[in-house]
Design a protein around this nucleic acid. Structure first.
Length: 516
DNA sequence: AAAAAAC
């Protein structure tokens, strides 16, 4: 088998690789490093988790080991779609270039220009950037890219999704095609990506690595088909279902990423989990950059157990050892499902991916199953399994004290009235195992059973008016979706209740469902 | 329909 020592890497790079504990390259590293060292263009079709980052940093460091950068004229450039990814690539350079005197600069938004300006002025060997901030520097005349010897485009398909392709083309145009070597990575080869590579790569070595996440055997997948007892309770009942799924996994769930489709839901879910005693923090693009970094660091070092995330964290982030991925929402782009669950089951380890699918997401679920060419196993809804006797004496979800009422903007208030489902879910939350997992939830449950429903209703109104004041857009959008579903395809086949009635689609085979 | 990325 190929070893790193067989690859003609700079001895000081090899030393750093050994110190990091690696001996054997991953397939993409073994295949991409030799042509890259020969100065050839490389087209790598691979996802993160395959060792992609090192497959370009290692040869780059080796190539850059000789020579020295001139002021404002970086010798190499790595473009990444998100700030986190760029920061991660920068760390990778630090790790493997530690025995060499290479200078680097990280050009990302959300942080001050000053430090970046100083570094550029001094001259850098490696520039790692997101497109927006790079162009910003360029337009201010701070940057000359004509001396770039190696240019890397990482996660090109994500750049495409994010509308960065025109920027990328502009940046390509700022470099010298005759002296530039290009290493280009993408998880998929969409037609637009194909076009870019045909335009900017010359006779590339094409390296394709199996798409590990498509239906990785190391990931146990499942989806819970869930219909709320009432439309307006969907959000809070989903959160309860999420807690139950987490609790059922027990110690097997050492850490997890919980994906939501919208930033607002990321905040709400994180806040709700915290309220119930779970160690959770949100991450999405509206949070301050320094805060994003801090959150990610604590998730990596294990002090944070649950990362509630938008798709900012779906791709590229290297967070080893994630035991679980929970898709609180079904992603609306099927491709994103593959990226999200690819955060677990990495490097041959076992992982679990669970998703909650509400009726309006069934079409997206079908798209995902078509993409991965597999039916995602249906999981029993754990909230439906409570025995009737327990249901009868279950408490209500709420019972807000004055203190918690203030936090009711998180949306928990909407699920307060008593009905079979709310009672059943509370009973579930009060089981002993759950108490161990979520002490705050347990305390809440014990005090809540005496709450009378009139009190609840008035709380509800108050909380809703708070919501209106705080974020009016929120309510508008939820009433929009209500209307849509009322006039929509739910007609005639609305599932009644949750306890005894099987949603009709579950009885259908996958083929029948697609056909009908 | 939303998220990400530039001030």
């Amino acid at each position: 088998m190929t070893k790193f020592s067989d690859l003609n890497l700079n001895p000081k790079v090899l030393k750093a690789i050994n110190e990091a504990g690696y001996e054997t390259p991953t397939p993409i590293q073994a295949e991409a490093i030799p042509p890259a060292l020969e100065g050839r263009d490389v087209l790598g079709i691979a996802q993160t988790g395959t060792g992609k980052t090192a497959s370009f940093t290692l040869p780059m460091i080796t190539l850059l080991a000789r020579g020295r950068a001139r002021a404002r004229m970086p010798r190499s450039l790595v473009l990444c779609p998100t700030r986190e990814l760029a920061a991660q690539v920068a760390e990778n350079f630090d790790t493997y270039a530690k025995h060499l005197k290479l200078t680097k600069a990280l050009l990302i938004g959300g942080v001050s220009f000053k430090e970046q300006d100083v570094a550029i002025d001094r001259g850098v060997d490696v520039l790692i950037a997101t497109p927006g901030r790079l162009l910003d520097h360029f337009e201010r005349g701070k940057l000359i890219l004509s001396d770039v010897k190696v240019m890397v485009v990482d996660e090109a398909d994500r750049m495409l999704d994010m509308g960065f392709i025109p920027d990328i083309e502009r940046i390509f145009g700022m470099t010298n095609p005759l002296t530039r070597q290009t290493l280009f990575f993408s998880a998929t080869m969409a037609p637009e990506i194909e076009r870019i590579t045909n335009t900017f790569l010359s006779a590339p070595a094409r390296i394709e690595v199996a798409r590990q996440a498509t239906t990785s055997e190391t990931i146990t997948q499942g989806v819970v088909m869930f219909k709320a007892s009432r439309r307006d309770r969907e959000a809070s009942e989903k959160r309860k279902l999420l807690r139950t799924l987490i609790d059922k996994e027990g110690d097997k769930c050492t850490n997890a990423i919980i994906f939501c489709n919208r930033k607002m839901d990321v905040d709400v879910v994180a806040k709700s989990l915290k309220k119930y005693g779970y160690n959770a923090s949100p991450i999405h693009g509206d949070l301050e950059q320094s805060h994003r970094m801090k959150t990610l660091d604590s998730f990596r070092d294990g002090s944070l157990r649950f990362l509630v995330a938008s798709d900012v964290a779906a791709r590229g982030l290297d967070v080893p050892n994630v035991s679980h991925v929970f898709n609180f929402d079904v992603p609306s782009h099927a491709e994103d499902y593959v990226h999200r669950i690819g955060r677990t089951g990495r490097a041959g380890r076992d992982g679990t991916a669970m998703m909650i699918c509400v009726p309006k997401d069934e079409k997206n679920l079908a798209d995902i199953e078509r993409l991965v060419q597999n039916e995602i196993p249906r999981l029993e809804n754990p909230l439906k399994t409570a025995k009737p006797a327990e249901v009868a004496d279950g408490g209500e979800e709420k019972k807000y004290t004055g203190r918690t009422r203030r936090s009711s903007k998180s949306g928990e208030t909407r699920s307060k009235t008593s009905d079979k489902v709310a009672a059943a879910t509370d009973t579930q939350a009060a089981t002993p195992e759950t108490n161990v997992q979520a002490p705050a939830a347990a305390a809440d449950t014990q005090t809540k059973s005496k709450t009378d429903s009139r009190q609840n209703k008035s709380d509800d109104r108050r909380a809703n008016s708070n919501d209106n004041r705080g974020k009016s857009g929120d309510n508008r959008s939820s009433s929009r979706s209500n209307n849509r579903s009322r006039g929509g395809r739910d007609n005639g086949k609305t599932v009644v209740g949750l306890g005894d009635h099987l949603p009709s689609f579950i009885a259908l085979s996958f083929e029948e469902r697609r056909a009908g």
